[in-house]
Nucleic acid binder design. Structure first.
Lengths: 140, 140
DNA sequence: TTTACCTATGAACAAGTGCGCAGGTGTTTA
DNA sequence: TAAACACCTGCGCACTTGTTCATAGGTAAA
């Protein structure tokens, strides 16, 4: 495809053709980069927390278990949407379910996610909205 | 705040008609629920970490600042995609940029996100893939 | 039994998002 | 000067993802 071994400057990591400035730093960072599956799994978990609805759902569950209809009310989702979201969270082992008759009580089942939630909430609580939409910090 | 003490059966939170089982618990959870803007902002931040590419980008930056081309190589993104991702991260004040001539060096600029990253990586490192795809824990 | 209720699911739709390509801006070098 | 370089951006495509409507399963009450 491309033969870049003779030219002096550019150095690739494993065969990918691209300009590299700090080869040493790049090598170090690459070596410390988590494995692909772990990375994808991590991104997945963050993705679960990336929506207000699911976030409310999980925040509500930090207080203890709740049934689907209550969770729907608290999260502002329809019961259908809440059930669906809970199924997703359950598939990722973030929540677990306890069934009693026709009721289904969900609860947080991942200490890691709980820490993430605490950290996030604590942060937003004393951090005045970082509203984006501003790219250039306006330097007159 | 809202009147939910007299009616026996269905009780809504602020006017939404929906079945509620544990009215007290619901009221408590709702009262402790973060404000809408904070919630959206939090979900936003998690959304930034919800993709392998951006995650690699940020993980690389935990080691120190890097230029765009090096970040592209490390993250496996094209320079175009890396630039765009960095712009997004910059808009949310997650990273900051230092320009020297025609180079642009990016660095992590949010201690909170750094904690989130550390926590996530530490978790995935000693947690054997929680592969989903399993919904019902097999209950015959 | 029938009825009412809570939860779960299927399918279709709509919306958002990431990426590649090509071109542009500003800077350094020949 | 022109050329090479590093970064940035507009356009369009394709993929993923969330939401809703309607319906089905399963349990408790009449």
């Amino acid at each position: 495809m491309n033969d870049l071994d003779s030219p002096p400057p550019p150095t690739a990591v494993d065969g990918c053709a691209a300009r590299v400035v700090d080869a040493d730093r790049v090598a170090t960072v690459v070596s410390r980069m988590p494995a692909e599956p772990d990375l994808i799994d991590t991104a997945d978990v963050f993705g679960l927390l990336a929506e207000p609805g699911r976030l409310r759902l999980l925040l509500a569950l930090t207080e203890g278990e709740l049934c689907v209809c209550d969770l729907a009310v608290v999260s502002g989702l329809s019961e259908s949407a809440a059930s669906r979201a809970l199924r997703l969270l359950r598939a990722h082992r973030v929540v677990s379910v306890r069934r009693t008759g026709r009721m289904a009580y969900y609860r947080l089942d991942d200490a890691h996610v709980r820490m993430l939630l605490d950290l996030a909430v604590a942060h937003t609580e004393h951090t005045e909205a970082v509203h984006p939409e501003r790219d250039t910090p306006a330097s007159p």
